[in-house]
Nucleic acid binder design. Sequence first.
DNA 1: TTGTATGCGTTATCAG
DNA 2: CTGATAACGCATACAA
Lengths: 336, 336
Amino acid sequence: MATIKDIAKEAGVSLATVSRVINNGPKVSDKTRERIKAIMKDLGYRPNANARALVKQKNPSIGVVLAELSDPFFATLAHGIESVAREQNLQILLSSGSIHAKTERKAIETLFEHRCEAMIVHSKALDNHTLIDFAKQVPGFVLINRYIPEIADCCVWLDNYVGGGLMARHLLNNGHQKFVVLSSEYQINDPYERLDGIKDELAKANIQLSEQQIACDKPDLEGGAQAMQKLLNNKPDFTAVIAYNDAMAAGAISVLQEAGYQLPEQISVMGFDDVMLARFCRPKLSTLHYPIEEMAVKAAELAIEKSTNLEFTPDPSGYKFTPSIVSRQSIKNLTQ
Amino acid sequence: MATIKDIAKEAGVSLATVSRVINNGPKVSDKTRERIKAIMKDLGYRPNANARALVKQKNPSIGVVLAELSDPFFATLAHGIESVAREQNLQILLSSGSIHAKTERKAIETLFEHRCEAMIVHSKALDNHTLIDFAKQVPGFVLINRYIPEIADCCVWLDNYVGGGLMARHLLNNGHQKFVVLSSEYQINDPYERLDGIKDELAKANIQLSEQQIACDKPDLEGGAQAMQKLLNNKPDFTAVIAYNDAMAAGAISVLQEAGYQLPEQISVMGFDDVMLARFCRPKLSTLHYPIEEMAVKAAELAIEKSTNLEFTPDPSGYKFTPSIVSRQSIKNLTQ
DNA sequence: TTGTATGCGTTATCAG
DNA sequence: CTGATAACGCATACAA
């Protein structure tokens, strides 16, 4: 592969001159500029990004570590990041953490080694301490979907507690009084926070949630189906199902329908996330909209700003997002 | 950030020795090895991947350009690639083409500049000639979801023509005789090939497809809905809808149901892709399974093999995949 | 077992 | 306007 040297030799000029035309340097005569450009095209010259990154002491790229690639809204997240990356002419370096602390750590370290100037990490397995440590090492480090008080200015996150409250309130407003909850078995914050939000809001209406009304399983379709089945076996009395996310809600719906229930006439179901699935399961799922793409864009912008402008003082209060209710057809209004 | 030099100085040894312990070089005494390792950890040393790539003349990474990130099966594709990348300790460099020839070209060139040793590109906008050109420049270049005869050994692709035939045959076998087709308006190969497959198979049963029986639109939900609406307005006589993909099929189903048709009793609908959507629309969609994850894995393995082993002679016949019928509930058997 | 020297492809700082 | 030349961080052939 042709280097700057080859084309310098071919053109009978010095390396410096060639470098100047590559970088649109100011002081080159139009004649030589054109001649060199022609030669570059001729030889199929492509600047070596690695050499460049080495000498410039930074890699114009944005590193992304995702908790898991199979996550349905990963595509949306990636799309958001990509849109700002393109605009800034930044390359994307992608790693997946696969929800293992070890792999996540490895993924982040790899990004470090590449000297990415900005980094967006969606960590589900690493502990706060480790993350804080990382955040302190690179200016452009941003956490998405996670809030750590010590590094609040690096966090773009969703208020899950408020989300849980919104779900409960919405159902309450629709006249429901007897609930059942499908939660995620993963030992991460989100499920706990949502659950706390639900419980607290319910408590305001003097409703307690007992352990028998909660089932945990994997936060996907199957998990939702199994959790629902467990609950059904106990034959609890309820009119509404509050699911950890849309996938679990959809799984629950299948089980419920196969058990002969009319939805939403007999039982209402509420999801969380507002992924595509929510619009296509029947009945169409009422859910909470998770503004993941906006969050991704914000995270990318923040990461770039922080890495570029060292004096930048972020406004921590601006990086919290709140989900909003999307009312479709899976919830029956009992008050009418 | 600490460099190899810093740690050499700190340890009172030469650069070479440090480099050896980093690369697990063979000739270092255990004592110094341990001492150096300790110092590395102490100083938080991280090898500079860019410097490494420069001197080794190759970047241990696999470049991926995707036609579009919002594509529903992009996540699946990425997941397949990622699984083999991890196994081989390869970093993923991601670019999106956004279905614009210019952007796609730029995406590929960026990957070139980074000297990725393997590249997997999903191009929808670039012409054959350009792609052939690229393929000849890097050994580890692989095209996914596209077949170009001149570089057949770089192509991992799905036989869309056979797929179209399978759809038609399946419907024919279920007693259907009157069809309507929802195709994609994008000027790329897939829709044409599928359509040809459909037409040819239908022709074997002496059925011709007229222009009024075909509607083109965007290959997504909305497009499917609109295409279906167009057809409905013309009030053609049909018992089965053949859609370009699951998304269009789902869009069509919405329109059909809102128009008061009973599905699948009155009208059967067939999709293509077998994405998650197919399992969750009602009636559950009968479709063709697109083995995208396997294809991604194969593409990654091929790309790595080609880049590693220059003598490797690929077996072109092994990189064609064939879709298979997934029978669910959206097709009524008219022969019973 | 360890050290020295050189080069990878660029950019950038000086001189001309 | 152009040309030498010194970094950048690391690997490696060759010496010691």
